[in-house]
Design a protein around this nucleic acid. Sequence first.
DNA 1: TTTT
DNA 2: TTTT
Lengths: 134, 134, 134, 134
Amino acid sequence: MVSYNRVILAGNLTRDPELRFTQSGVPVCEFGLAVNRVRSKSEEVDFFDVTAWRELGETIANYKKKGDPILVEGRLQYRTWEAQDGSKRSKVDVVADNVQFLGRGGGEGEGSGRPRRGGDDVEFSEKDFDDIPF
Amino acid sequence: MVSYNRVILAGNLTRDPELRFTQSGVPVCEFGLAVNRVRSKSEEVDFFDVTAWRELGETIANYKKKGDPILVEGRLQYRTWEAQDGSKRSKVDVVADNVQFLGRGGGEGEGSGRPRRGGDDVEFSEKDFDDIPF
Amino acid sequence: MVSYNRVILAGNLTRDPELRFTQSGVPVCEFGLAVNRVRSKSEEVDFFDVTAWRELGETIANYKKKGDPILVEGRLQYRTWEAQDGSKRSKVDVVADNVQFLGRGGGEGEGSGRPRRGGDDVEFSEKDFDDIPF
Amino acid sequence: MVSYNRVILAGNLTRDPELRFTQSGVPVCEFGLAVNRVRSKSEEVDFFDVTAWRELGETIANYKKKGDPILVEGRLQYRTWEAQDGSKRSKVDVVADNVQFLGRGGGEGEGSGRPRRGGDDVEFSEKDFDDIPF
DNA sequence: TTTT
DNA sequence: TTTT
């Protein structure tokens, strides 16, 4: 059977990314993403929860904060749990497997003290690619 | 600011599509989509709700039914409402703006008497393209 | 058989869009797109030719110019022709079916005097996110 | 500046995948992909060249052959070279970074020994995946 | 609520 | 032929 699951979102962090670790020490980063509806005169926004694992999660936690624009590629995830009142609940969120930092145009509100990425986004060792001719 | 919102899913309908109409007569089709997680030995599945409007919705309602495979392109939508107990609830679903019917190989369950394939790739006059050299 | 063909590119126009018309008067807009390779220390760039039809093509021709950033969604197209020396040649380009104008941060180079798309796109104020409740 | 480059294609291999190695021993797999144009009454097909590196390339080379359906996710790549007559040439192809094997279609000319599927598309035997490590 |  |  054909199965495919791909999401691409660009928007802004609604809160500072939160970095936690699983019991076995795997980093998990969670953040909210606000995506404005283009082609909509109304001021509508869609809000999503995003999870990023491992190095990707750490990078986001280290460099991004509330308000920052980001492009997220990943898959949609359906999750279920039992609410405190015993009722079943479910939720659809996004698991990122790729991210691109989008620069902030002006950046006046950008609190410094943290490494600032000047609009481009490079972090990630090129060494593995040394002998690849393109 | 960059905003982007794109989802591509392929899976199977979890129920027959339901076609309704808004007060002003606009067709709205809703169905469930099950997408199996590839790369997962475990039997995991993600479930999504999909909405398709107008002709697209009508086509789906006319040609697809529970179990049928389908590829859906669209956008993620965030919705909020108030539950009966007064609590706030929210939900993420998919609004389709393009669909591709995936065939069923054997097709034993495929009720015949209905047009098979070809229904989905018609809407759109080739005539405008007559003088386009490619 | 499953067929699917989707491209999403964001980059900058390498030249002013060129608007032409078919014999039957259908607008066709063509432009070049430069997409910088992220994750590449080297100054590498991919160049593509993009075609947009009808209103979409007209909108691009009216509002965009060399250097402007743009996001293009569409499909890959393979074309063949015979070169002047009789040899066969082929080419892969992009047919846009959706476009999003990306704002220029500062906008100093933004020649004003042209309509700047007010509603359906681009730059929005980060301030709207200040009071997002999560 | 925003840069983004994503392609998703589903179609059939036009030739057996060819596996080679760089000087430093990195596997590179190349194959052709034919993607039928949906929504086109005419029998049109787009042809693309695809490259897959490392384990991904090896897996494709080991499991796929001419005629097999495949879904390819990756990026578009622009390449230039000098033709034998000294003229500049360029080409756009696809670098895969993710692949999903789709089931085998009719396959009349297909050497059996492998599970054959009854219909004209889609469903593929899960069994083929039993020893594929993802 | 769940599909192959 | 090439953009930031």
